[in-house]
Amino acid sequence: MSFFDYFRSKKQPTSASVAKERLQIIVAHERGKRAQPDYLPQMQQEIIEVIKKYVAIDQDQVNIQLDNNENCSVLELNVTLPD
């Protein structure tokens, strides 16, 4: 290892820390999906179809999320309407 490499290697995160970060993100994402009931994707699709009848929107302008609190579940529907 040359003298200059010594400084350069300090800036690069190690491959293990890259692995950890990637895992934390994907695992959190998959855990969130796991908590969802099976019918959610289809319900989302059908809600989009209904909105589409009235407003021209894309699939990715609708965000649907189910949050479970202690004794109630909140279904959150976010639709970005075009101008």
């Binding site: 190690t14 293990a16 820390s17 692995a19 695992v27």
Partner: peptide, 16 residues
């Protein structure tokens, strides 16, 4: 390899 930063450590896996 953990010491060299090439492998996830016990603490990393436990945390995840």
């Amino acid at each position: 390899r953990v010491q060299a930063g090439e492998m996830l450590s016990v603490a990393d896996v436990e945390e995840i």
